[in-house]
């Protein structure tokens, strides 16, 4: 994984970037800390016409039908700083409240295509659910397929190519994941990282301590009852 600010490789469970110290709260100062109300297709820069928007909406619906846990959102904007597109994408996916999505699809399963028409840069961000299934190389190959259409300014075609390519990659990954799950069994929570393991140990310890203190209290009470 890469840090969205310094683009250095970081650990999957890093609480902050070890190179530049980046955390998401840094962006809250820049873009705000509240929720952002959005639709799946947000064309702030006016890149698409009405008919094109309708077509893209249908394509997004098809994507959601095929992948019941996921959703795909597209944001056309005009940012000022080219280097910030990764950070803005990350921030937007964490703060967005999608109006046209049901509650059953949290932002964990979201994929955001961010197209900056000002600096002419496009990026893909995705939620935690796809962390194990999508790599940077996957997303780069998908964007590279849409590059000629982006150059021509055909944003509908570019978006549809991205959605289709991404669907193809995700279908393959899903089949493989389900197969692996059948062979090796469902993923256990123990393998979910050192932070969770530490938390579990702490919680176990606290439960034992609580039980011990409870038993101490009862023995004390009993002894007090006997003493008078």
């Amino acid at each position: 994984m890469r840090c969205p600010r310094c683009v250095q490789t970081i650990h999957r469970s890093a609480a902050q970037c070890p190179h530049c110290g980046f955390v998401l709260s840094d962006l809250d100062d820049l873009y705000g800390s509240g929720e952002v109300r959005l639709r799946r297709l947000s064309d702030m820069a006016g890149a698409l016409r009405l008919k094109e928007r309708q077509k893209l909406e249908r394509l997004l619906d098809e994507f959601q039908t095929s992948f019941p846990q996921l959703f795909f959102s597209v944001y056309y904007g005009a940012l000022e700083d080219r280097a910030n597109i990764r950070q803005f994408g990350l921030w937007l996916l964490n703060h967005a409240a999608y109006e046209d999505l049901d509650i059953g699809r949290p932002n964990d399963g979201g994929i955001l295509l961010l197209v900056d028409l000002n600096t002419k840069v496009a990026s893909i961000s995705f939620g935690y659910m796809l962390d194990s299934f999508l790599t940077e190389e996957n997303t780069f190959n998908i964007l590279a397929k849409a590059h000629p259409h982006l150059l021509q300014g055909n944003h509908l075609k570019a978006a549809s190519v991205i959605v289709k390519q991404l669907s193809r990659v995700l279908r393959r990954k899903s089949r493989r994941a389900i197969l692996q799950q059948k062979v090796f069994g469902p993923p256990s929570n123990q393998s979910s990282g050192s932070a969770n393991a530490l938390e579990r140990i702490r919680s176990n310890r606290s439960a034992k301590e609580q039980a011990k203190s409870k038993s101490d209290q009862t023995t004390r009470a009993k002894s007090e009852e006997i003493e008078p």
Partner: peptide, 20 residues
């Protein structure tokens, strides 16, 4: 799969590729 939070982000910290 439960993934630990990264960079303080509650929903997503997956930064994909960028293309100009």
């Amino acid at each position: 799969v439960e993934t630990p939070e990264r960079l303080g982000a509650s929903y997503a910290a997956g930064v994909g590729a960028v293309i100009a």
